[in-house]
Design a protein around this nucleic acid. Structure first.
Ligand SMILES: [Mn+2]
Ligand SMILES: [Mn+2]
Ligand SMILES: [Mn+2]
Ligand SMILES: [Mn+2]
Lengths: 158, 158
DNA sequence: CATAAACCGTAGCCATTGCTACATTTATAA
DNA sequence: TTATAAATGTAGCAATGGCTACGGTTTATG
């Protein structure tokens, strides 16, 4: 068993009967990234939703979020509490939910990114309905390099 | 409170003081889709991994998967058990993991989709490292319409 | 063959995000 | 103002996917 580092990534080679049998795995980096991105996903969607609901209706209630995401108000309530602890949201019992400065900053970044992904998919030729669905998931998995490439594509097209 | 159905989607309008204050929300469809896609993500990644490891090394052990995904062997073991129950994998104690017919079929679909997403990002101008990372997450959020659009883009470019 | 190393399973912990059922608070309306 | 409706909170359950610790099984090697 030999452990080798390549570009900071652990590569494992297994010698069985004198010859190398297995090498695993630079690929694991991608999965670690994906898991980490999923860990931020709820926060990103929630601050974006809060910003949109406030813009549209002047305030954002727990039940608005429940309907926005199609989940129960209990699920929303618990997540709002967590994001309050993480200083992204402000919330008091029976009061509307608000964004902290940090939350608003994140929301603006996330909204911008979402808009680019959506516009990109539509420009690529995807119908709006599917573009809206797909972009809701894809937005959390695009690096800044990918966003740049999408912007580039959009600029060239117009 | 009035509940209206548009294209099978529930739209809620709230009357406060006689006038409509809120409408929520066709957007919820996208989130429901995203949650459902995340629910399939582990299965998709695992059957793809099993197929790749078998192709590369002749067999797929629990520890190979652990290194492939960069998680503990315990996590793999539990997930393999679940996917065995779901008839996507075959597994017996201390034996290598194998694909069922159904699992192999899913793996082929998922591998093909992954290849398209990766090639697409690279063709779009994203460097390989970021393309590999991003595609690992994006692959689970592309509708068949989006895949078609990506294929189209790849054909035009060549 | 015996021992060590590698592999794998199980127990049990945690965090997250779904849910229903029920209690409490706030807002609307009779 | 009081009764009802709407909104919110709390208790408690489940599934999923992380983990460490520990013990059993299989394989490699001296
Ligand atoms: Mn999203
Ligand atoms: Mn995702
Ligand atoms: Mn993946
Ligand atoms: Mn994949």
């Amino acid at each position: 068993m030999a452990t080798v580092y390549v570009k900071g990534i652990i590569l494992n080679s297994y010698k069985i009967g004198g010859q190398v049998k297995k090498k695993v795995s630079a690929r694991s980096v991608a999965f670690s990234h994906t898991r980490s991105r999923h860990a931020n996903e709820t926060a990103e969607d929630y601050v974006e939703a809060v910003m949109e609901l406030i813009e549209e209706f002047g305030e954002c209630r727990v039940l608005d979020l429940a309907r926005y995401f199609n989940v129960s108000h209990v699920t929303v309530s618990r997540i709002v509490k967590r994001l309050h602890d993480e200083k992204l949201l402000r919330s008091r019992p029976y009061k509307p939910v608000e964004l902290t400065q940090e939350g608003a900053k994140l929301a603006r970044r996330v909204k911008e990114r979402h808009k680019i992904v959506l516009a990109f998919l539509i420009e690529l030729g995807v119908d709006e309905a599917n573009a809206e669905i797909d972009s809701e998931g894809i937005e959390h998995h695009v690096s800044s390099k990918t966003i740049d490439a999408m912007k580039n594509f959009l600029n060239k097209k117009t």
